[in-house]
Design a binder for these strands. Sequence first.
DNA 1: GACGATGTAACATTAGTTGTTACATATAGA
DNA 2: TCTATATGTAACAACTAATGTTACATCGTC
Lengths: 138, 138
Amino acid sequence: MAVHVLAVLAYKEGDRVTSVFLAGSVNTNPVTIRRLLLSLQRAKLVDTCKGAGSGSRLNRAPGRINLAEVYRAVEEAEPFAAPARKPNTACPVGHCIRKELDRIFASAQKAMERDLGKTSLADVINAVKASSASKKMV
Amino acid sequence: MAVHVLAVLAYKEGDRVTSVFLAGSVNTNPVTIRRLLLSLQRAKLVDTCKGAGSGSRLNRAPGRINLAEVYRAVEEAEPFAAPARKPNTACPVGHCIRKELDRIFASAQKAMERDLGKTSLADVINAVKASSASKKMV
DNA sequence: GACGATGTAACATTAGTTGTTACATATAGA
DNA sequence: TCTATATGTAACAACTAATGTTACATCGTC
C-alpha cells in the first residue's frame, strides 16, 4: 500500500496531494493514509504540510527512492518469526534456538531487502505507464 | 515455530515424539502442533503415525532439510503484500500497479527463500548444540 | 479570522491466530 | 479382540493486530 501511495505522489510530480485524495485512490480512508504518511515522513521520503491547499509530495526524485527504503520505513518491526514465544527454558532445544533463528531470519530479510533495493519507484511507475499505454492501444 | 518443532524432532533422532511433548517444548498446545504437523506432512518433511507409542519423526536426515522448504511448507499463502485491495479502478495508478507489485514482491520473496535455502536443519542444530555446550562450560 | 488540511486519540469493526474442549478414528500391544 | 494411546478434526472462545469511523485540536494559507 505504501508503494501505491508513493506511486500516486510520483504521478503528480511535485504537486501536493491531500490524504483524502490518496485515500480515494488506494480505496481506504484518510486516517489510515495519514498514519502511513507519518512513517514515510520519518523516513524522509515525503514532505507533508498542513494548511489549506497543502498535502504531501515526494521528497526526492522517484529514481532515487528504492523499494527497500520504503519497506523499511513501513515495517519497523521485523515482519515474521517475531512473535517471540516466551523463552520456555525447560527444553534443551528451546533454550538456545531463538538467538540462532533470529540470526537466520535477519539474514533472510537482508536478502529480501537487497532484492527490493534493485527496484526504484521510477521503475514501478514506468512499468505501470507502459502497461496502461499498451492497454489503451487495444 | 515450525523450525523449533523440527529441531526437537531432529534432536530425538528417529524416535517418534508425541504432539503433547512437542507442545510442552514449544510452550503451546497439542492442537496447534498437530495443525502445524499437517503442513509438514504435506511437504513430506515429517512422518506421523497414530496409535499408542506413536507420534512424529523426521522423514529425512536433518542435513537434507533446508529452511526454505520449511518456510514454504508453513507459509502456503504469500506472507505480505497480499491483502489484495480491491482493484479500485478509478485511479490511473491503482489500475495497473497490482500486477507490477506482485512481480516485484515475488522476486523479493524468492531472494529470501534462496537465502533460507542456504541453511539446513542440521546447521541449526549444530549451532544450538555449540551454544548450549559453551554455556555449560561457564 | 475563517477555511482547509494534518495529527492524534478513542472506539468499533474485522480478520487471523491461537487456545480449549470434545470426540471419532486408527494403531499397538496385551 | 479389547483397551490404551495418539492423531485428525470440528466447533467455539479468547486474543491480537489492522483497519475503519468519528471527533477534535492545531497549524497554515488565504
